[in-house]
C-alpha cells in the first residue's frame, strides 16, 4: 500500500518517517489498523524476542500476522482509550535502552508519543511511521472536547456542536490539532465539508 504524502505545512505540524530496526534492550511497538504493516516490515526475530506489541485493529485484520511474529508480549485491544493504562504501565516500567516504534493513524501515534514523553523516554528513542487513515484527532478550542478521527474540514464538534475549521496547529501535549469556530463572524455560513486533504 502506498503511503500518503502529507503536504508541507507549518512547524508545529508533526512529520513522520519510516520505521527502521534499531538495537535496544527492549522494543515497544504500538500500532493501529494498517499501521500493523509497518511493524511487519521492520520486525526481525531478534527484535521480537524482546518486543511488546500493542495493536488496535479498528477493523483491520493483521492481528494473526502480528501474533505470528511471536513477540515476547502481544496485546490487541478495541481502542486507544482501552489500551491507555497498559501503555502507561509499559512506559512506566521501561528501562534504559527501550526503543519505541509507533505506526498507523496520527491520533494513536500522537497519544502514544505523549505517553512516552510523560514517562521520560527520550525523543531520540521514538520512531513514527504514518500508515492508513489521514483523519485527525482534534481539540475544540471552545469546549476543549476532543473528537477522534476527524476526516473532513469543517467538521461539527462532537461535544458542543460548533462548526469548526481544522487547523494545522498541533499540540504534542494534547496530541491533537486545533479546531476553531468557522462561522463566528457570519453565523450559519458553514462551507460544505470536504476531505481535509482534498
Amino acid at each position: 500500500m502506498s503511503k500518503f504524502e502529507f503536504p508541507t505545512s507549518i512547524i508545529s505540524r508533526p512529520v513522520y518517517g519510516t520505521l527502521e530496526p534499531r538495537d535496544g534492550s527492549a522494543h515497544l511497538m504500538i500500532a493501529d489498523a494498517t499501521g500493523a504493516q509497518a511493524i511487519l516490515d521492520v520486525a526481525t526475530p531478534d527484535m521480537m524476542a524482546k518486543a511488546h506489541i500493542i495493536y488496535i485493529p479498528k477493523g483491520a485484520e493483521f492481528g494473526h500476522r502480528l501474533r505470528a511474529l511471536n513477540p515476547a508480549q502481544y496485546y490487541e485491544g478495541p481502542s486507544y482509550a482501552a489500551a491507555e493504562q497498559r501503555i502507561a504501565k509499559a512506559f512506566g516500567d521501561a528501562k534504559m535502552g527501550l526503543q519505541v516504534y509507533l505506526s498507523g493513524s496520527e491520533g494513536v501515534m500522537g497519544q502514544a508519543q505523549h505517553a512516552a514523553m510523560q514517562a521520560g523516554v527520550p525523543h531520540t528513542a521514538i520512531q513514527t511511521e504514518h500508515r492508513g487513515s489521514t483523519a485527525r484527532r482534534m481539540q475544540c478550542v471552545h469546549c476543549k472536547g476532543i473528537t477522534e478521527d476527524v476526516a473532513t474540514d469543517p467538521f461539527q464538534c462532537s461535544h458542543c456542536g460548533l462548526h469548526l475549521f481544522v487547523r494545522d496547529h498541533y499540540s504534542r501535549r494534547l496530541a491533537a490539532y486545533q479546531g476553531v469556530n468557522i462561522d463566528a463572524e457570519d453565523p450559519g455560513n458553514v462551507p460544505e465539508a470536504k476531505g481535509i486533504y482534498e
Partner: peptide, 22 residues
C-alpha cells in the same frame, strides 16, 4: 492564541501559525 493549547510548545512551535516571519 490559546495558552491551554500552546502549553509545553517550544518557541518555533507556538509561533508556527504566524505567516511570513519564519
Amino acid at each position: 492564541w490559546s495558552l491551554d493549547f500552546d502549553l509545553g510548545m517550544n518557541f518555533f512551535e507556538w509561533h508556527a501559525p504566524v505567516p511570513m516571519a519564519h
